[in-house]
Design a protein around this nucleic acid. Structure first.
Lengths: 128, 128
DNA sequence: TAATGTTGATTACAGGTGTAATCAAATGCG
DNA sequence: CGCATTTGATTACACCTGTAATCAACATTA
């Protein structure tokens, strides 16, 4: 049963973040990395790693008695799928209402606007 | 304990959708409405309504022996908060990488582009 | 009035999630 | 070599979720 990327939980996602930063990497290393920002118990992280392996989101190779873990898909693929899924559920699949909310709440930054402009240019060029 | 809008589950959100369409409204009506698109058992919908009431996402008034339900916040407020939360978790709070993913996957529609342009104009005017 | 139907309240129950603790095997240290 | 430590595997446990079924109170109908 290949898991959809979308049933990665929030906590599991944080673990994946650490793996995307660097891999393959041992559990101890992941724990250190995560503990820079989260107060998670070592055991908790190991549980999450195990669940990710079961969900086929993470693989490992044995290096002596330890495992070295790696993510099985790209961060970008996951975040894109998650975005799409949310936008499908709440905005009928269209991204502009989401951006509208951002604009309305003054959360649009200068860099966002700049980036958006360039996406638009790009898009218009492709659609001549 | 006032619930954050963000702990509304996906199924609960669908019930809210029905309420945003029309309210105040009786459970039977909600069930009919939902059954146009989802094969949910009557009992299931009632459970979800109950949970929404407990979470203080929905209120009701008694009309004889039935309740008439209403949502306690606006759809737009909820969807905006949900968007923000996802964008915070996956894109450090910036919306443009999300739109980038959409562009890359060819999910940007003409209307989106048009809308985006007008948000940008708006924004630029405000930030002259 | 007795049986039936409707409606909300309570209970059920398996699988997911956050957050660990315990177990067991291999290793390292004294 | 024997004990402590490390590491993955298994188990724990409460709360959330999806998906209902049962219960209890009131209303309707024969």
């Amino acid at each position: 049963m290949k898991a959809q990327m979308s049933d990665i939980s929030k906590a599991e996602f944080e673990v994946l973040e650490a793996l995307w930063q660097q891999h393959p990497v041992a559990a101890s290393e992941i724990i250190l990395r995560l503990n820079e920002t989260k107060p998670w118990h070592e055991k908790t992280v190991k549980t999450l790693l195990n669940r990710l392996v079961k969900k086929q989101a993470v693989s490992f190779i044995k290096e002596q008695r330890r495992y070295l873990y790696s993510p099985l898909f790209e961060r970008e693929d996951y975040t894109n799928e998650a975005s799409q899924s949310l936008i499908e559920r709440m905005f009928s699949g269209r991204v502009s209402p989401l951006v509208a909310g951002f604009a309305k709440n003054k959360r649009l930054k200068k860099e966002d606007v700049q980036a958006l402009k360039s996406f638009i240019d790009q898009w218009e060029q492709e659609h001549e």
